[in-house]
Amino acid sequence: MSTPSRYWREIPQRYRKEANRCAPCDLIYFPPRLICPECGNRALEKTVLAEKGSLMTYTIIRVPPSQFKDQAPYAVGIVEMDDGVKLTGQVVDCEFDKMHTGMRLQMEFRKMYDVGHSGIICYGYKFVPEY
C-alpha cells in the first residue's frame, strides 16, 4: 500500500494525467518515461492525457486486495484513450450488465482506497460512462 512519499511522487500522474511524448515516434507514454523504448529518444516532451476513451476489455473483481474490500465487486478495464494511450482503471457508475467493450468512458477523480484508519487517503482517476 502507498506510503506518503510513494503516493506523493505519483500525484502529477494520478491527479493531472501528466504524461510524456516521443515526437519522432508520435507515441505518448503514461506514466512518463525517461527513454522511448521504440527509438531510444531521451528528449521526451511533456503532455497531458486525453480525458475520454473507449473500453477495450474489462473484468469484475470479486476477490479484491484488502484495501479495496469496501468497493467490491468492482469493474476494472483497459481503456484506449482518444490519444491512443491505453490505461488500466476502474469503471464505476455503470451497472455490470450494461458494460460492454467499445463503450465510451471519461475520467473522474475518485478515492482509490484508505491506508487503514489513520493513514493517507489515496486518490486518482477512475472511468465513468461519458456524459
Binding site: R14, I61, P64, P65, F68, V76, G77, T88, M112
Partner: peptide, 22 residues
C-alpha cells in the same frame, strides 16, 4: 505494476480475466 495496475485494484486473476474477455 504496483503503481498503475495494483493501485487500481487489479488482481492477478483480474489481469488474466482482461486477457480472457479480449
Amino acid at each position: 505494476d504496483q503503481e498503475y495496475e495494483g493501485y487500481h485494484g487489479l488482481t492477478f486473476p483480474g489481469l488474466y480475466a482482461l486477457i480472457a474477455r479480449a
